[in-house]
Design a protein around this nucleic acid. Structure first.
Length: 816
DNA sequence: ATGGGGACAGTTTTT
DNA sequence: CTGTCCCCAT
């Protein structure tokens, strides 16, 4: 216990009450743990690295550990720092810790996302980096707008040097904990040699606006810790135990932040899985987890490898695949569960075909089949590499009326209407919020366009006023004539009136009202009654009504307008949970999410990234084609590192499945409107054959085909069979096999066999007539790399793999 | 000031 | 082939 803490008494009261209640349930949270989990829970002192594979009960161990810390009196809840990446994870941990300790655990103020914890810290020490404690947190929109202005001011061509790119650059620097002064080396060449200059200008501008972006939350705290030893020491002492979830996803700034804080008691427990590191492209450093033992000498490394999620075939397929990666910490999942179905592998003609087949499979699963019990739609998911792949499924499912839900679309608070509404609330609560002003001054249209806005800008700048005050000045001077003048007057009067209403409703409370968070902040003043009259909700409603914003959407004829109005209602409803508008605004940027609790049975469609941490009995993994998955861009930009991250993504995908995992690929796919022939993913070659079953969709590539010239094996065959016969899964893969051997036009001729049958060598020659399922008849004009150049009679010239055409004489053999 | 059309680009995403 | 952004014509 900290003797120097003046507020100890206040909290330890509630603390003791809680401990008392806890005592009775003698550590029930330990009972259900396996030996490794238990070790991870009970190894309390010193650094601990918990390597927790997919589905190994990581959260159980983590939450039990927290419970154990509290239960054994090692730390009080508010002396434990526990950070996650997502609000969802934080919420879940809070809930489960509460359950372990018998409910009502409200005293864990430092369990949250990196960002929410940093906001809390930064509000307290804002002045150390030149901010006021009521700083606003900008959303990406605001950032881009601001940077655009700076680029214009810097006299740069905003076409050649888009603000988006600058934003990405600066974000990257912040992820690496680089302040403008610290940007060095070849980085300075970035953005026409003016990157760091613009970065500095941007930071200046933020300071003037009393604003931060997401990256700043971490960066400012790191800066403060590095430059104010006393502040750092205070927290080093305070946080007796530190826990970090998804450590493999931490970036440099987060790493530094953690390392600084952990230097005190050195009780840091990081949980992660190097095999599931899939966020390198946004600054995550797998290196952090790989070098943990170096960073924290004497660290205990505990591996959780017993998997409680998937069948042995699924685990073996995933393990076999990920084994191709180098520089792993090493870990192999195992399970007690025996049996189960092998991972299924299927090739399709094209993307639509793939979607059609998967749709049918899902419906069949839903009904139940001879060999499978019915699986509800909620228990089935389609995981794609890139969101544009979702479209084929949505199209298909809409036509057949299969209910689906897309996970991870635009976040609630990122939506246009929510941002607009928030800007109104922001401006009303803080009239000096210029970015909010800019956003809504002409939304809805008030006839206040560029010209009017420029005059406001000038008036504000010349008099050192906020934009709203500048506007007031113009109104007072009657500087704007006609319609614009009247509209501007109305606008400023409205804002002012609403602002005054807030002041009356809750006189000078709120902003500094302490949360029952921790011991370092001043305790809440007694006698401040919580403002439960919900007047702020009605005010918010009126703001949206009287500003004409609601009306704007009511008059909007586009199909999304009703949804937007619906969202606005939801937003207002969300306000009820807060005491006032300020409180709402302070939290909303960090915690609003999209968790609509839907009750209807639906199949889920999401990206592999969005699927991390989730699990489904039935999982479909479509689009396993080289260039799409692994993504060409990843490989181009990051080479082997990129490929390995893609492989981890594949690993994440497979390990989401509990009972049935189906991987598929299409031979042809429309990419930006152009048909392209696709190669099966090299990851397919890396799957251990013994755990994969190659299937042939009915009517394609096999099953019941006439004159196919290869084993029909209707329905399925084990992969070993296929490999011995066709040898197409010969690593390093079909593609390299073909491209390396591409001595001119020399390709297997059986178009429909794809990976199934590469035998039957026969060469095409210039002038040969060929047939393609989609393009019809054509003439071979030559070759290019591993592709044939074919001039089709109807479809024109195409480049495609020889395996997708057949000699024209064999056209009858092609199904359909 | 505003809306329509042409040019252009086009992974993965949390906070 | 889309969707987005910006410019220009109204």
């Amino acid at each position: 216990m900290e003797d120097d803490d003046p507020y100890e008494g206040a909290v330890s009261l509630s603390q003791r009450a809680m401990m008392g209640a806890t005592q009775a349930r003698a550590a029930a949270y330990l009972d259900k743990l396996n030996p490794e989990q238990r070790q991870a829970v009970e190894t309390l002192d010193g650094p601990v690295l918990m390597l927790a594979g997919a589905g190994t009960g990581k959260t159980s161990a983590l939450t039990a550990r927290i419970a154990h810390l509290i239960h054994t009196g090692r730390a009080r809840p508010n002396e434990i720092l526990a950070v996650t990446f997502t609000n969802k994870a934080a919420r879940e941990m809070k809930e489960r810790v509460g359950r372990h300790l018998g409910g009502a655990i409200e005293g864990m103020p430092w369990l949250g996302t990196f960002h929410s914890v940093c906001v809390k810290l930064l509000r307290r020490h804002a002045e150390l980096v030149g901010l006021k404690s009521n700083f606003t947190i900008l959303d990406t929109d605001d950032q881009i707008r601001l940077m655009k202005q700076l680029i214009v001011v810097a006299n740069m061509d905003e076409k050649r040097w888009p603000a988006r790119q600058l934003a990405g650059l600066i974000d990257g620097w912040k992820n690496k904990a680089l302040t403008p002064e610290r940007v060095s080396g070849r980085e300075t060449a970035a953005f026409d040699n003016r990157g760091s200059e613009l970065y500095a200008a941007y930071q200046d501008r933020l300071k003037t606006l009393n604003a931060v972006d997401f990256g700043d939350l971490l960066l400012h705290m790191v800066t403060i810790f590095q430059t104010h030893a006393d502040v750092l020491a205070q927290y080093q002492r305070w946080f007796r135990y530190i826990l970090v979830d998804e450590y493999q996803d931490t970036n440099v700034a987060q790493y530094l932040w953690l390392r600084l804080l952990a230097q005190g008691h050195k009780n840091i427990c990081c949980v992660g899985d190097d095999d599931q590191s899939i966020y390198g492209w946004r600054g995550a450093e797998v290196g952090n987890i790989l070098k943990f033992e170096k960073d924290f000498p004497g660290a205990a490394v505990i591996r959780l490898e017993q998997n409680y999620r998937s069948t042995e075939h699924i685990l073996a397929a995933a393990s076999g695949l990920i084994a191709a990666n180098e520089g792993r910490l090493g870990k192999e999942l195992w399970t007690e569960a025996e049996g189960g179905e092998k991972v299924r592998l299927i090739g399709h003609w094209d993307g639509e075909e793939e979607a059609r087949w998967i749709g049918e499979e899902i419906e069949a699963n839903q009904r139940g089949t001879r060999s499978r019990a019915p699986v509800s739609l909620n228990n089935q998911a389609i995981l794609v590499r890139a969101s544009h792949q979702m479209r084929a499924f949505e199209d298909r499912f809409l036509t057949i009326g299969l209910p689906y839900r897309v996970i991870g679309g635009p976040r609630f608070y990122e939506r246009l209407e929510i941002r607009d509404a928030m800007a109104y609330f922001r401006l009303v609560t803080s009239p000096e919020d210029d970015l909010a002003f800019e956003r809504i001054i002409n939304t809805p249209k008030r006839g206040l366009g560029d010209k009017a806005q420029q005059r406001i800008q000038i008036a504000a700048r010349e008099n050192g006023l906020s934009l709203l005050d500048g506007a007031k000045l113009l109104v007072a001077e009657g500087a704007l004539s006609g319609k614009a003048g009247g509209q501007l007057r109305l606008f400023v009067e409205n804002i002012t009136r609403w602002h005054d209403e807030i002041a009356q409703a809750s006189p000078a409370t709120a902003v500094t009202r302490a949360e029952d968070d921790d011991l370092l902040i001043e305790p809440a003043e007694d006698g401040v009654a919580p403002a439960n009259d919900l007047s702020h909700v009605r005010l918010a409603e009126r703001i949206l009504e009287e500003s004409g914003y609601v009306e704007m959407w009511q008059n909007d004829k586009t199909p999304e307008a009703p949804g937007r109005l619906e969202n606005l209602k939801e937003l207002v409803k969300a306000l009820e949970q807060f005491d006032n508008l300020q409180g709402f605004l302070e939290h909303v940027a960090l915690i609003m999410d999209n968790d609509k609790s839907e009750t209807e049975e639906k199949v889920s469609i999401m990206t592999l990234h969005a699927a991390k941490g989730l699990e489904f009995p039935v999982v479909f993994l479509p689009g396993w084609e080289d260039g799409l998955f692994p993504s060409q861009r990843s490989m181009d930009e990051s080479g082997l590192k990129g490929l390995e991250e893609e492989r981890r993504l594949a690993y994440v995908g497979i390990t989401r499945a509990e009972a049935l995992c189906t991987i598929s690929f299409a031979g042809n796919r429309r990419v930006y409107g152009q048909w392209q022939s696709q190669m099966p993913s090299r990851f397919i070659d890396e799957l251990p054959p013994a755990h994969v079953e190659v299937q042939t969709p009915p009517g394609l590539y096999g099953g019941g085909m006439n004159g196919g010239g290869f084993s029909a094996g209707a329905g399925s065959a084990t992969m070993e069979d296929r490999v011995s016969r066709a040898d197409v899964y010969n690593s390093p893969g079909w593609r390299r096999l073909q491209s390396a051997q591409s001595r001119g036009i020399s390709q297997p001729r059986e178009a429909r066999h794809m990976t199934i049958d590469a035998s039957g060598e026969s060469d095409y020659e210039i002038g040969d007539r060929v047939f393609h399922k989609k393009f019809g008849y054509g003439e071979v004009m030559g070759s290019e790399g591993d592709k044939l150049v074919v001039e089709f009679d109807k479809a024109g010239e195409k480049r495609l793999l020889a395996s997708f055409v057949v000699p024209a004489a064999d056209a009858d053999d092609v199904p359909f």
